[in-house]
């Protein structure tokens, strides 16, 4: 980060969607670093929390899924653990938020991307504008998760009777359980979109496991970002052995 930032002070500023650690390494194929180790660990802690929350929450949401409490050691354990996992998710996601919020600010091409959503769904990316690190769909997932997690933690605390019973009225608790349930349904849908997109767009999952994608993937899906990375590469080409 320091090298890039120091350089950019003299050249053009680093674009919003280039995050610390993002870099290009020429080769066959070109390797593009997309997520640092810390970002990936942060992501998977969040992911595991969200999955555990969905399972334990669904168990308490509908009697037909109450059997899922067995995964957590029974009903009492599920009731006791669910809010604490929520606290883990909140802080873990806060870490992701601080890492990713800047790259998820709206960009001009987002409107065009959304207007051509049918081309997106058909996989005709040659008909789409060049996209930065995140497309409008990814930004929707990011901001959707951010907003819903705020709603879920706030309503969750209002119904966490073990510690916070005295702080809300029963009528407020009733609002909280309804809001919590609706927000949970929404966040699970956002999660389904997120996971499905990662499965559908081949070569994506490696970004969150090994931290890298191929140059072709970046060219196809996030060409603006790739151009920015190539443009801000110190010393440009050819790469020195020391790099």
């Amino acid at each position: 980060m320091s090298a890039g930032n120091l350089k950019s002070r003299h050249q053009q500023p680093t674009p919003d969607d280039v995050e610390p650690g993002d870099s290009v390494r020429p080769g066959h194929p070109v390797q593009v670093s997309r997520y640092t180790v810390a970002a990936r660990i942060n992501h998977w802690v969040t992911a595991l929390s969200l999955i555990l929350l969905a399972l334990s929450g669904m168990a308490l949401f509908t009697p037909s899924l109450f059997f899922l409490t067995g995964l957590f050691g029974g009903g009492q354990w599920t009731r006791a653990l669910h809010p604490w996992i929520g606290v883990v998710l909140f802080f873990s996601f806060a870490g992701l938020f601080l890492r990713f919020w800047k790259a998820n600010l709206p960009a001009r091409e987002d409107g065009t991307w959304l207007a051509r959503i049918s081309d997106v769904l058909r996989g005709r990316e040659e008909r789409l504008p060049e996209i930065g690190k995140y497309n409008a769909g990814q930004k929707f997932v990011f901001w959707g998760m951010s907003g819903l997690i705020i709603v879920l933690i706030a309503s969750g605390i209002a119904m966490w009777d073990q510690y916070f019973y005295a702080f809300t009225s029963i009528e407020q608790k009733r609002v909280a359980v309804l809001v919590h349930a609706v927000a949970a349904v929404c966040i699970i849908c956002v999660w389904i979109i997120h996971v499905y997109a990662a499965i559908w767009v081949k070569g994506t999952i490696g970004a969150m496991t090994r931290g890298k994608v191929t140059g072709g993937w970046a060219w196809r899906h996030h060409r603006k970002w790739l151009r920015e990375l190539v443009g801000t590469r110190p010393g440009k080409r050819p790469p020195t052995p020391a790099e």
């Binding site: 194929p29 070109v30 559908w200 767009v201 081949k202 140059g215 072709g216 993937w217 151009r227 190539v230």
Partner: peptide
């Protein structure tokens, strides 16, 4: 599936 083509990889190599 939405796959990356050989052409995409070549373009990226040229860009890099």
């Amino acid at each position: 599936p939405n796959k990356v083509s050989e052409e995409d990889e070549e373009n990226a190599e040229r860009l890099a």
